[in-house]
């Protein structure tokens, strides 16, 4: 399978001299679903922020073999990478329709294509069509997550970076979120790099797993190699040192 994203020996920090990523490396294949797990503070969210250009990176990050490290976020987005942060990524005082339009910012000079994409989103998520004139802040938690994912789908990214999408959600809602990601994957053939603490549920959807600890890779491989017992043992190792 062709490599879509490669992260090669990357270091990154919020404060100079305090590296959170310490030589992190991974790859995401074209069309793949890679799950990143690890204890708190391992650098999982930092990894996504660094790939998306929100933190300065030292090392190599490439999309389709072309370097993207330290490009501004809006340029990385234009190259086909989307980022769903942990928080609900909607604009509460804008309508659902306006939220989708913001998601289609990179298509603003192609109004016909944007209209087509929004219509497609309405087909996939009929509830968003019904509530198009409602303020996003009035949506339920599940609908808000749906709008977050739908907003990123408008640009039909080749790679979606998804950070803890189920944090704080009830189990039934969490399952809906995984289903949303699978819908996105099928509908627009996107690859997914998912960071999740909800390991047991996320493992059922991923194809490859990377376990991080202290800003680098602790273990990596196909999901079949990451049974619950092994994951538990690896996390214990991380925590106990």
């Amino acid at each position: 399978m062709t490599t879509l994203l490669s992260v090669d020996n990357v270091f990154a920090a919020y404060q100079p001299g305090v590296d959170i990523l310490q030589g992190m490396s991974l790859t995401v294949p074209e069309g793949g679903f890679v799950l990143v797990i690890g204890p708190n503070g391992a650098g999982k969210s930092t990894l996504l922020k660094t790939v998306f250009g929100m933190l300065e990176a030292r090392g190599g990050i490439a999309l389709d073999g072309k370097p993207i490290a330290n490009l501004p976020s809006h340029e990385i987005k234009r190259l086909g990478v989307s980022y769903l942060p942990q928080e609900l990524n909607t604009f509460p005082h804008l309508t659902v329709e306006e939220n989708l339009k913001v998601g289609g910012w990179t298509l603003r000079k192609q109004p016909a294509l944007l209209k087509e994409r929004i219509a497609r989103i309405h087909e996939i998520f009929p509830v968003l069509a019904e509530r198009r004139r409602s303020k996003a802040g009035s949506l339920s938690g599940g609908q808000g997550r749906m709008l977050s994912v739908a907003r990123e789908m408008i640009a039909e990214p080749r790679l979606m970076l998804v950070d803890e999408p189920t944090v704080g959600l009830a189990p039934n809602l969490a399952e809906q979120v995984y289903e949303l990601l699978q819908i996105a994957r099928r509908a627009i053939s996107t690859s997914i790099l998912l960071v999740d603490q909800n390991v047991s549920d996320a493992l059922r959807h991923a194809e490859d797993v990377v376990m991080m600890n202290l800003g680098t890779v602790k273990a990596a491989g196909p999901v079949a190699e990451f049974g619950e017992a092994r994951v538990r043992a690896l996390i214990q190792e991380c925590l106990l040192g």
Partner: peptide
């Protein structure tokens, strides 16, 4: 208007 509500949100929109 979007930026006034979420700076991260507009960055993720490109």
């Amino acid at each position: 208007r979007a930026t006034s509500q979420s700076r991260v949100g507009v960055q993720t929109a490109g």
